[in-house]
Simulated scan of single mutants.
Amino acid sequence: MASVTPKIRSRKDGAAVPLDAFDKQLLNQMQGSFPIVPRPYAEVATALGVEEAVVLKRVAELVQQRIIRQVTPIFDTRAFGYESMLVAAKVDPEHPWRPAKIINAHPGVSHNYLRNHEFNMWFTVATEPDSPLGLEGTLEVLARETGAESVRQLPTLKLFKIRMDLDMAGDTAALAKSAEAVAPAETERQPYDDLDRAVVRATQGDLPIVSEPYADAAREVGISVDALVEHLNGMVERRLLRRVAAILFHRRAGFSANGMGVWRVPEERVFEAGAQMAAFRGISHCYERPTYADWPYQLFTMAHGRSKEECDAILDAVETEVGCIQQRATLYSSTEFKKVRLLYFTDDFKNWEREHAGV
């Protein structure tokens, strides 16, 4: 099979839209500190020292300008019993759009990227708790339909960090600096009931950019706004809901490059090295994953920067700080085929399995 190296997005500003100091403060607040209260925009406005109407107007404009992708609850896939994993596939490098379209059609695929490696298609896929196919069967179908030469399953063995918010104000030095990291709790399936399902269905997806964004969802569930907010906060405590936040279009927000740094370290140093890597502000995700004969890397990190050079600086700093790296590779994305939030408790999963596997 002919080898083609995809073009890496490395322009300094890319498709970035100019943002002023207030925009950067607002986006930091919306990504990391969006409160779960009846009137969250009023609290954001208070934190920024402006009126609520100013925040509502500017957030709506940032959505319209495709800088904010959506404001949405971020539920924990594993806590609801969904199986999920990262998958690396070797597909035809000359014609990647055909297999991408097939993979994207699965409702459990939330992210899919073309990357500069022999394993060139990287996607995350999830299946429902009661899926007849499960992950194994689903990947068999996808491998067959895409004609993938090889598929590598890369489930999470250890989660060190998952926190996708971009520091809009920090410079390269700040992103490449190690800080104290708090490891997230390992989440297994948690108990949930019909009310939890109803709340998820009513709130998932885009929350409206209005003073009381939970009002419509509360009416759909049949409870008051205060009761819905209380329930959402309880879901955070029960680890079903990670947070509510603004998700950005990275490149439009100025972060035109993302580099997946993969690392081979001594087996006895995996936990120590993973914790050190997770401490960097410029690292959004850090996991331990299984190795293969053709894939020796145990640790995976995602770096986001305003240029390829900034990503390299973050990963170089990680390598210097950790100090026990035996092998490193950096995979840059050249095409974003799909990036969405997973929608839970819909008929889409069952319909896909019925259509593609007759189950």
Results as ranks from 00 to 15, higher is better:
179 A>K: 03
126 A>F: 02
263 W>Y: 15
278 A>P: 01
269 R>W: 07
47 A>H: 01
104 N>D: 12
222 G>T: 03
249 F>K: 01
170 G>F: 14
193 D>Y: 06
258 N>R: 11
95 H>R: 14
261 G>M: 06
239 R>Q: 10
310 E>A: 03
129 P>Y: 04
139 L>W: 01
53 A>S: 10
302 M>A: 01
307 S>N: 01
324 C>D: 15
11 R>M: 10
295 W>Y: 09
196 D>I: 05
197 R>H: 09
295 W>T: 04
117 H>F: 04
132 P>T: 00
306 R>E: 06
221 V>R: 02
99 P>D: 02
234 G>I: 10
320 T>K: 09
112 N>T: 05
263 W>K: 06
32 G>S: 13
205 G>F: 11
77 T>F: 13
118 E>F: 07
340 V>I: 13
288 E>A: 14
258 N>T: 12
92 D>V: 01
307 S>E: 10
351 N>I: 15
83 E>Y: 03
189 R>C: 06
75 F>N: 11
272 E>K: 09
357 A>R: 08
209 I>V: 07
279 A>E: 11
358 G>R: 05
256 S>G: 13
71 V>Y: 13
22 F>V: 03
234 G>K: 07
131 S>T: 10
22 F>M: 12
333 S>D: 09
304 H>K: 10
258 N>S: 14
303 A>M: 06
326 Q>F: 09
297 Y>N: 00
266 P>G: 13
139 L>V: 01
128 E>Q: 11
262 V>Y: 00
298 Q>V: 06
339 K>V: 08
83 E>W: 06
205 G>C: 07
104 N>E: 12
158 K>E: 14
239 R>A: 08
231 H>C: 08
208 P>Q: 02
123 F>E: 05
134 G>H: 09
144 R>E: 15
253 A>Q: 12
261 G>Y: 03
334 S>F: 07
197 R>A: 15
7 K>H: 14
109 V>W: 00
176 A>L: 12
99 P>L: 03
8 I>C: 05
81 G>H: 06
121 M>I: 00
60 A>I: 04
69 R>A: 13
135 L>S: 07
9 R>D: 09
64 Q>A: 15
252 R>E: 15
235 M>A: 08
138 T>K: 12
116 N>Q: 04
176 A>I: 07
349 F>S: 02
348 D>T: 02
342 L>A: 06
174 A>C: 13
111 H>G: 09
42 A>L: 14
